[in-house]
Amino acid sequence: MAFTAARTASDTMSEINITPLVDVMLVLLVIFMVTAPLMDFRIPMGLSQPTPEPPPPSEQVSLLVERGDLFRLAGQPVTAQALPAALKAIESRQPGFLLRIEVDPEADYQSAATAFAAVERSGIGKYGLAD
């Protein structure tokens, strides 16, 4: 077996092979040249136009959940069992109203959950929590 002699400090390689670097750069250049024209596509979008007049404000009805499992719908006391029927009655009289639900900080979580379940069962579309 023949071994090559050990290199000395003066025999170090001082050249850098830049052929792979040039190859990679040319490939990237070709890729960018091919894909650049494809980047100029636009998606047509239909933007909404401003309406001349704002829609009329919907009437608000408040549902107050108080501590002790007490409910007040539009200021009138209502039981938990009668709450879905009362909400449906208001929906039939005033379609499209906004139900504003206020929960007393001292009320039980179960009372608030009962109120939300009654609102869901009654099928009211617009409701929200009051500040």
Score class of each variant (00 low, 15 high):
Ala9Met: 15
Met13Cys: 14
Ser111Lys: 02
Leu38Arg: 03
Ser58Phe: 02
Ala130Val: 03
Val119Glu: 07
Pro54Ser: 10
Glu120Thr: 08
Met13Val: 13
Leu73Tyr: 09
Ile18Gly: 11
Ala118Gln: 05
Glu15Lys: 13
Arg7Gln: 13
Ala130Phe: 00
Val61Glu: 01
Ile16Ser: 15
Ser62Met: 08
Val22Ser: 05
Ser62Pro: 06
Pro54Ile: 07
Phe116Val: 05
Arg7Asp: 11
Phe3Gly: 10
Pro56Gln: 09
Phe32Gly: 09
Glu66Lys: 13
Gly123Met: 07
Phe3Met: 11
Arg42Cys: 02
Gly125Leu: 11
Leu70Gly: 03
Val119Cys: 01
Arg72Ile: 03
Gln76Val: 11
Gly96Leu: 05
Val65Gln: 04
Pro55Ser: 10
Gln49Phe: 07
Pro54Lys: 13
Phe32Asn: 07
Leu70His: 13
Phe71Ser: 01
Val27Gln: 02
Ala2Lys: 12
Ile101Gly: 06
Gly123His: 03
Ala6Phe: 09
Gln49Asp: 10
Asp40Pro: 00
Ile124Lys: 06
Gln49Met: 11
Gln81Ile: 08
Ile43Lys: 10
Ala80Glu: 11
Pro56Ala: 13
Ala113Phe: 04
Leu64Phe: 14
Ala107Ile: 10
Pro50His: 12
Asp108Gly: 12
Lys88Gln: 10
Leu26Pro: 01
Ala89Gln: 15
Gly128Cys: 05
Ser48Gly: 15
Asp11Gln: 15
Ala118Phe: 04
Val78His: 00
Arg67Val: 06
Tyr127Asn: 10
Ala85Thr: 07
Ala89Val: 04
Glu106Lys: 10
Gly128Ser: 11
Gly96Ser: 06
Pro57Trp: 02
Gln60Tyr: 00
Val27Pro: 04
Val34Gln: 03
Val27Asp: 00
Thr4Asn: 07
Ala2Asn: 08
Thr12His: 13
Ala85Gln: 09
Phe71His: 02
Thr4Gln: 11
Ser58Met: 12
Thr51Glu: 12
Val119Ala: 07
Pro77Ser: 08
Ile16Glu: 12
Glu102Arg: 13
Asp131Val: 12
Leu38Met: 07
Val65Phe: 01
Pro77Trp: 08
Gly46Arg: 15
Ala115Lys: 04
Phe3Cys: 06
Pro55Gln: 05
Thr114Asn: 11
Thr4Met: 08
Tyr109Asp: 10
Gln110Glu: 07
Leu26Met: 12
Phe116Cys: 01
Asp69Thr: 08
Met25Arg: 04
Asp23Val: 09
Ala86Val: 01
Ser111Cys: 10
Lys126Thr: 08
Gln60Cys: 06
Thr35Leu: 14
Glu91Ser: 12
Thr79His: 08
Ser92Tyr: 04
Gly128Gln: 14
Pro57Asp: 03
Met45Thr: 11
Leu28Asp: 00
Leu29His: 00
Gln94Phe: 08
Gly128Asp: 15
Arg100Glu: 14
Leu87Val: 00
Ser92Asn: 09
Ala9Arg: 14
Ile43Cys: 02
Thr12Ser: 15
Glu59Pro: 03
Ser92Trp: 07
Phe116Arg: 09
Pro84Ser: 02
Ala113Lys: 10
Ala113Trp: 02
Ile18Cys: 12
Leu83Ile: 02
Ile90Gly: 00
Ser92Pro: 00
Arg100Phe: 06
Asp40Glu: 03
Glu91Lys: 13
Pro77Gln: 14
Ser62Leu: 07
Leu99Ile: 04
Ala115Phe: 05
